[in-house]
Write a protein that binds this DNA or RNA. Structure first.
Lengths: 336, 336
DNA sequence: ATGAAAGCGCTAACAA
DNA sequence: TTGTTAGCGCTTTCAT
């Protein structure tokens, strides 16, 4: 089958011992220059590369990071994954990616599997179901093995580990404030992701700002049945005399725009729209969507940096930190 | 650091030899039932799991597949990855994902890296640069090591391996035919992905159909500078009196719709639009885009199936095959 | 029915 | 300067 060159073969061919060859390859000063050269020559002739498995078994390090994502068809996570991959590969780490499809059970299974395949560390965004059930034993278990975890975006307070999050509350406040500043009075907040911690924060932020302004109304629409989102939003827009919408996820905002077209409302003249997550939909809607960018790539990259850093500088008694990545409101054409 | 239970520890605690424990765990009939039970009991007490690294080193199998993708922010590849992941994990395989960002150099680097970390096989979609340069030595090299490859979508004739592709030519023919059937006469073909093999096939298909119909005109617009796509398309639409557009990629189609809005053209009344790749943009454009679905998830899933199958049934002298996944035209609201 | 020993490919302490 | 040896955790052949 596979017939890669090993130290043994090099050693035999050079009439040296395995350890001499091994040391030569590392330019160990205790080996004569002549030998080192001979070894290097033959090694590069055969294009020798050490067997990563054996090195890992020996060193107890795999240079591999396990990534657990709830979804990949969601642009936010795709971008985060991109950021992670970029950053990890920069430091010579590989990533093993698992997608939980928002299922708790799959998440547990994957985390265990990755743990037994000896990843050096984890980067995780919790599945929706896990957040709802709030069951996190699988992470406690890997922490007992001293395997570091970095959580991002979908995090849990129950686990003491590094976290990289977005300041969803502030982001939401800013978005609402922007709507107010551009003369919106009756603002709708539409969400299809009610169960998530991030959604709650966004909701809180919105409420706080609205509560401070007597002349502003906030109407909340939470959509659970994902089949019917378009019709629900259409009905909602028709029956409520609003002048602005904050979509808590990208699709909600995109659909709002489309349903406005359908109903003949002009954007942003009749209704201003702001969405969360600056993905493809926002860039390619008409008019282009004003969005809260969570800088997903940065988020992922930062998570990877923190983990790699932790892994490469194995400090004693590590104290975990939570890092907040700033959001920004990208003003496009769906607001005044 | 990590303190997983090993066979050795179980053996010591049970006063047995390592090999007896190992065999017991596999319910080897030559071990007494009583011993087997004792072993199993202690093993599950400690939640023993074999060290995957050691098993791999021994068996020369890692149960890991290397995935090489040109992009991940592109919905097509995200869907394919999803399909791959689902299918692979179903068979107990992990996936290591690398993203080349369409760069030849990165692709080479990743393929070598994956090869040295001993993945059992590869699933690859070539980067644009690799297709243009047509340099494929890195794959020949892993084939010499007898590591199986499955290419999908972006494939190369130079490499003799399993392939899963979409019948882009037929898909394009069907799309054009549909436009003709709905009374379009002057069709524009817009592409931003000229260099790719798939684009060439789509172009060929379109030309073939148009050539057969004397009363139909085809105008081709190839956009190279990705910064300026919107403006270019807008200008093109204004200066050409066309009644249909086939976008060879999803963005081209989405932008066509948006620029039509801007110019006041009605879709589909003034211009019919069909796109390739049935992604988020198509579902959330207004009006909803009629698209050629390449069934990216199926494509990925199929690639994974073929590879896993090959891996798990290590037949002698394998003859490679190319599988074609049918496309379908999803009729939505951007055509009559 | 159980165990000893070799070996997967590599590293590193220790010997020579 | 080079080589011997043990060991990472596991499987497997060959004793006992």
């Amino acid at each position: 089958m596979r017939k890669k060159v090993t130290l043994k073969q090099l050693a035999r061919e050079l009439n040296l011992s395995i350890s001499t060859v091994s040391k030569s390859l590392k330019n160990d000063p205790e080996i004569s220059e002549k030998t080192i050269n001979r070894v290097h020559e033959l090694a590069s002739f055969y294009n020798y590369k050490p067997n990563a498995l054996a090195v890992s078994l020996k060193s107890n390090k795999t240079k591999t990071i396990g990534i657990v994502l709830p979804e990949i068809l969601n642009h936010f996570f795709a971008k985060a994954l991109f950021g992670i991959e970029q950053e990890a590969s920069k430091s010579g780490y590989k990533i093993v990616t698992c997608i939980t499809n928002e299922s708790y059970e799959k998440e547990v299974e994957y985390v265990e599997m990755l743990n037994y395949s000896s990843v050096d560390g984890f980067i995780v965004a919790l599945s929706q179901e896990t957040q709802v059930l709030n069951k996190l034993d699988h992470y406690q278990s890997i922490q007992r093995d001293n395997v570091p975890i970095v959580m991002f975006d979908r995090v849990s307070n129950e686990i003491d580990c590094d976290k990289v999050i977005v300041d969803d509350k502030v982001a939401s406040k800013n978005a609402i404030q922007y709507l107010i500043d551009t003369n919106c009075k009756k603002i709708a907040l539409i969400t299809t992701i009610g169960g998530l911690s991030v959604a709650k924060l966004r909701l809180e932020g919105a409420r706080e700002v609205v509560d401070k302004n007597d002349d502003i109304t906030l109407i909340e629409l939470e959509l659970k049945d994902s089949n019917n989102v378009e019709a629900e939003i259409e009905k909602f827009l028709k029956n409520n005399d609003i002048d602005a919408v904050l979509g808590l996820d990208e699709t909600a905002a995109a659909i709002t725009i489309n349903m406005s077209h359908k109903l003949g409302y002009k954007i942003p003249d009749d209704i201003s729209v702001i969405g969360f997550t600056d993905g493809l939909l926002s860039k390619h809607s008409y008019p282009k969507l004003t969005t809260v960018s969570q800088h997903a790539e940065d988020l992922g990259a930062r998570a990877a940096q923190i983990l790699v850093n932790h892994l490469d500088n194995n400090e004693e008694k590590y104290k975990s930190k939570t890092e907040i990545v700033k959001t920004s409101l990208i003003i496009r054409d769906s607001t005044n």
